[in-house]
Write a protein that binds this DNA or RNA. Structure first.
Ligand SMILES: [Mn+2]
Ligand SMILES: [Mn+2]
Ligand SMILES: [Mn+2]
Ligand SMILES: [Mn+2]
Lengths: 217, 217
DNA sequence: AAATAAATTTAGACAAAACTAAAAATTATT
DNA sequence: AATAATTTTTAGTTTTGTCTAAATTTATTT
């Protein structure tokens, strides 16, 4: 599998988690920052290699083989992120871009050794689960902060968006994984929230709340 | 710089260390496992980018810019090798192939953090010097075992060839960096050596001796 | 100093992965 | 049900890096 094929497979996997039907050309093009016509070409190649099932105009789904391949790329991506944060003192907003490259290093042995070296972590620095060598991963119940009712107390478990700007916003407001938050107010007009954290009240937009995974405690 | 350009620059650098004149097309093609015509094409592109000086039929030399780029690739290659051996328990015959991929990960910050994490090592697992972030590296006086005189005692400091088969040969005979060796006999006919190591006499061919760097002690 | 051999470059072709523009199919709207 | 809008695919290019085969230059012999 080439670098580019791997990126496509990974994107199709991520899209599959959200909508379990056939993934359409434009959605893939959007994620991979290419054009629909390029996606059609690549998807044909992936179908040829039996990594996806594809019928013209009907979108694409991962085969068993493709699903496993995708999970192995995600495994590498997230283990490298843990390495960068735990061992090399990178911050959680810096690691995604680097892992985007490191995930393509081709060696089962290397990634299994890295896994061991890191103590078989179950989650990456953004709260996402790390597949084991067989593709198994834990499933933690979490919901978006934007969907939690008023006056509930929640713990922050992960982020939906791991772009640097969002993560830096969280850092600035001292929100990290494990932070405990109480929802004090929900503004009906714009769905912004007033939350209580470490005795301080802060106001956050609906967009922020819609990218924070939490569980009610 | 692309993956392929980096490989060319590194090969030209390694060849430059042996013969300081213009590096010729065929030598590069041999190392990179491509054809002379492909080398000509690439060399033109590298000249365009001012990484090499090139005149038709006259071979190629690295510019200052090209030399620095080459050293940074070598730095990455060797630091990753140290990481794999020291932290992930790989053996010295396994790491070269992996480092060949890892050396292309593009991040100054990552490699400087890795350097620090490893304790700023001065040499890689094969005894080769690791350039610092400015391209500086130590120069240890070493010579090939094949060139040392009779009855001398030497210490093994490095290998010229780091192919798995050679390194596995050394493992089999318990020769590692730091091993002390005395030359007992040199056979005039084939230049094979009888050496004394840990009280045991072993016979090694001239080809083996010609790939082991040592210093007289 | 030719003639021959070897090394190097050019010319033309190909595969991978992307693009633009146009055609075709599907979906939504009147 | 017909038309319009959207999505997807096809056709034809482009760039990067490679190749083979032929032409050219340099090096080595006679
Ligand atoms: Mn990637
Ligand atoms: Mn992550
Ligand atoms: Mn390489
Ligand atoms: Mn090495």
């Amino acid at each position: 599998m080439t670098y580019s094929e791997e990126n496509y497979i990974k994107v199709i996997y991520h899209l599959s988690l959200v909508s379990p039907k056939g993934i359409n050309t434009n959605a893939i093009a959007g994620m991979i920052e290419s054009k629909a016509s390029s996606v059609t070409d690549m998807v044909k190649k992936l179908a040829e290699k039996e990594l996806v099932d594809y019928q013209k105009y009907q979108g694409v789904t991962l085969t068993q083989k493709g699903l496993h391949a995708a999970k192995m790329i995600v495994r590498k991506h997230r283990l490298w992120e843990v390495f960068l944060v735990e061992k090399l003192d990178f911050t959680w907003d810096e690691v995604h871009a680097l892992a985007e490259e490191l995930e393509h290093i081709k060696s089962e042995k290397l990634i299994n050794r890295l896994d061991e070296f890191l103590g078989f972590p179950k989650e990456d620095p953004h709260g996402d689960p790390i597949p084991d060598r067989y593709g198994q991963m834990i499933k933690v119940e979490k919901q978006l902060l934007s969907e939690v009712g008023l006056n509930k107390k929640v713990m922050c478990l992960g982020v939906k968006d791991s772009s640097p700007s969002f993560l830096q916003y969280l850092d600035k407001h001292q929100i990290s994984l494990g932070s405990e938050i109480e929802i004090i107010n929900k503004e009906a007009f714009d769905m912004s929230l007033t939350i209580l954290m470490n005795g301080k009240e802060i106001l956050i937009s609906n967009k922020i709340a819609g990218n924070l995974f939490v569980k009610v405690i």
